[in-house]
């Protein structure tokens, strides 16, 4: 969907927030940022966009740009929290590159994501559900709940996420090539 950002159109802006706010939040949270820091990372991306409006030539790619900028800001905040010295002030805004990992996530896509989890075989389905809904559970707790050896939780988690990713990619291809 194109966004005509040359026009002072508040509706187009609200559509951007509606459409991409979801995945920007996911990107910031995926960095392990707390809610306050994640909010700063997301807000940074919106402010960079308003600063950059005159230089944006490809409104179709604004979504990818917003997600990339959120990731960039989240990484910077993460480094600061980790006590790493900042190399100067915020760097330039990243190029408007594509971002395959961010090909998720609207509300509808969120539903498809969980539908894909439901098609996974056990123990993947239960393991992913537990990891998501009980993030504080350690591997020992997960192992007890699922009746698995604790040493296999890590490798199983990796394998299940890989399967989920494959399912989503297949799903994505089917939608692209009806």
């Amino acid at each position: 969907m194109p966004y005509d950002l040359d026009l002072p159109d508040e509706t187009a802006w609200r559509e951007l927030v509606e459409r991409f706010g979801y995945r920007m939040w996911a990107v910031a949270r995926a960095f392990g940022l707390g809610p306050a820091d994640a909010a700063d990372a997301v807000q940074a991306a919106w402010l960079r966009l308003v600063e950059s409006l005159p230089s944006i030539r490809d409104p179709e790619r604004v979504g990818a740009w917003l997600v990339t900028t959120t990731r960039h800001e989240a990484a910077r905040i993460g480094r600061r929290r980790a006590g790493a010295p900042l190399t100067g002030l915020p760097a330039d805004i990243p190029a408007m590159d594509g971002d395959p990992a961010a090909a998720l996530l609207s509300e509808d896509e969120g539903r498809r994501l969980w539908a894909a989890v439901d098609t996974l075989r056990e123990p993947c389905r239960s393991l992913l559900r537990l990891i998501v809904t009980a993030p504080e559970a350690g591997y020992a707790q997960l192992a007890r709940r699922l009746g698995m050896p604790i040493g296999s939780i890590g490798p199983t988690r990796i394998r299940c996420l890989r399967r989920l990713r494959t399912l989503l990619e297949d799903d994505h291809r089917r939608n692209d090539d009806p």
Binding site: Y22, A26, A38, R165
Partner: peptide, 22 residues
């Protein structure tokens, strides 16, 4: 990518909603 996918799952599950203020 796994971190992102898990964060996306959490949001989609409603266990990490975007704060209205954001």
């Amino acid at each position: 990518d796994d971190d992102y996918l898990l964060a996306a799952l959490r949001i989609a599950a409603g266990s990490d909603p975007i704060p209205a203020r954001v």
